[in-house]
């Protein structure tokens, strides 16, 4: 029971963590990416479709990444090059992804009734390590994407706060006018972050279909992209805290499944609402924008 809970916590935390790290990158350059839910959903569908038709998990992952990047590229044209309202554009992309994946899904699979499934991504074999109590289920029980997600935490942190390039990215988010005046190329930096975030949210989506559900149902991302937004706030724009917040979310989800399975009287909805409620409280508590980049959400037009 405990092992299942721990293992499921990490499995649920992974897609959120991947997406949240991508969201952190774009937010540091000054873009609030509401379209992350759409990038994740597109990644989920196209990863599975590619894996299903080619029989290759690797090509599936590539297609998921491509779909995530494609969605973020549309966002990039709108919010970077045309400086439109980021919130409305992002919401439009979420709606677009639900529509496109739904239309394709029903066109190719909905009517035929064929099982739209692939075999799950294999777990990495750690041999006897898996049988260590607690630690085995928590750490040595997962597929490669899980380790990749957690390995990305220090990588993203290092790039953002220990490199010159990271300083440039953050300058684009804090003071875009100043960054452009220094010749840093705010548009280019924001595009870099959007592409990186597209890769990560595409992978997050691919994880949902290739490693977790092994099939696709409409709107499979089910708000996990919005959870990633909440997780970035909960983690106060710091990679390790974001990882902790993702695990907290994973635990809430796992606990909810456990409670439903046990048939207890505790309302499981409480745990599902928890990440959102916590994010609201954190936002109210830190008095708004204290930890967020000061240019966040402001459209910036180069003169």
């Amino acid at each position: 029971m405990l092992n299942a809970f721990l293992s499921s916590t990490i499995a649920m935390a992974t897609p959120v963590l991947l997406a949240a790290l991508g969201e952190l990158l774009v937010e540091e350059t000054g873009i609030i990416n509401i379209g992350i839910e759409g990038a994740m959903l597109s990644g989920a569908f196209f990863a599975l479709a590619a894996a299903y038709f080619t029989g290759s998990i690797l090509l599936g992952l590539a297609a998921g990444i491509a779909a995530g990047v494609a969605i973020n590229a549309i966002l990039g044209v709108l919010v970077v090059n045309l400086s439109v309202n980021q919130v409305v554009a992002g919401t439009a992309l979420d709606i677009l992804a639900i529509g496109i994946t739904g239309v394709f899904y029903r066109r190719f699979f909905g009517i035929t009734g064929k099982a739209f499934m692939v075999s799950p991504m294999p777990r990495i074999d750690f041999g006897p390590l898996t049988r260590i109590p607690v630690l085995g289920a928590l750490v040595f029980h997962h597929n490669i994407l899980v380790y990749l997600a957690f390995a990305m935490v220090p990588v993203v942190g290092f790039i953002l706060w220990r490199t010159r390039y990271g300083l440039m990215l953050r300058a684009a988010g804090e003071r875009p006018e100043a960054a452009d005046a220094l010749g840093l190329g705010v548009y280019r930096l924001r595009w870099h972050a959007l592409v990186a975030s597209g890769v990560l949210s595409g992978l997050a989506g691919a994880y949902l279909t290739l490693a977790y559900a092994n099939t696709f149902v409409e709107n499979i991302s089910g708000g996990r992209g919005y959870v990633a937004l909440a997780v970035v706030i909960l983690g106060r724009w710091k990679p390790w805290e974001i990882a902790a917040a993702s695990i907290l979310f994973g635990a809430a989800m796992a606990l909810q499944f456990g409670l439903q399975a046990l048939g207890t009287q505790v309302p499981y909805q409480l745990f599902l609402a928890l990440p959102y409620a916590l994010a609201l409280m954190v936002l109210a508590g830190i008095g708004g924008q204290a930890a967020s980049p000061s240019g966040l959400g402001e459209p910036y037009t180069r003169l």
Partner: peptide, 20 residues
């Protein structure tokens, strides 16, 4: 035989074009 969610593609496109 076209999914009704096609309507959402239309919604999204209209929003994006008007923004632009």
């Amino acid at each position: 035989g076209v999914s009704p969610v096609l309507v959402q593609v239309i919604q999204a496109l209209v929003i994006m074009i008007l923004l632009a």
